[in-house]
Amino acid sequence: MATTTVARGPAKPGARAKRKAPFPVEFYRSALGKKYVMAITGIMLIGFVIAHMVGNLKMYLGPEEFNHYGEFLRELLVPILPRTVALWLLRIGLIAAFVLHIHAAYSLTRINHAARTVKYQSKRDYIAANWASRTMRYTGVIFGIFLVWHLFDLTFTGTNYHYVRGMPYENVANSLSRVPVALLYIVGNLALGVHLFHGTWSLFQSLGWSNPRFNAWRRNIAVAIAAIVVIGNVSFPIAVLAGAVHT
């Protein structure tokens, strides 16, 4: 038979799945399932990023307001839950979302590389695929590295400045007053903005949210979210450098 691909024969749908697994796991095994997970964890992460940005705007109200906001987070849902428990639950959810988001991205990237082992030997001329959509894995990785650094910088240990646990306002002002650090924050957030620009639009497709009534808005929503997050977050290092936020 003149065919060079997969042997023909009775089609065996789902032959790839090895063992019967609980249905969410089975769903996640498919690439489409991974896209759903990407989209849902993406929504969680977008929610966090926006809340994080909005919370940080308190910086402009002064140290007391800002530090009080930090304390509020630790007091969240007290007395239903003991102090910091709600915050930890949120953190665990967030970490899980990150891990899944990264694992799904990693697996899909591997699938996609295997799907075209020999690349085009001439220059591609893309029409719809934009710079953001084709650099998701790079903007994701850049932001991920930045995030780790950011956690060490302001949450765990501080990075070579006078770090005081429980004094976030002072820590931010001290850290970001260093020009290279401020630049790093700007770069990290620009990468995040580019990532959100495609990611937010993309999640509508992945989740099957397509409807002529709101389709025209999907791109606008993505632009708005990316813009708000970038403008808010980039304003902090600039404000610190400009002297509007200082110890």
Partner: peptide, 20 residues
């Protein structure tokens, strides 16, 4: 949809919504 998607995924890459 299940059978077609499963077969598709055995052979092809995954969609990242480029729109190309």
């Amino acid at each position: 949809v299940e059978a077609m998607v499963d077969t598709m995924e055995e052979l092809f890459g995954s969609c990242t919504n480029h729109g190309e």
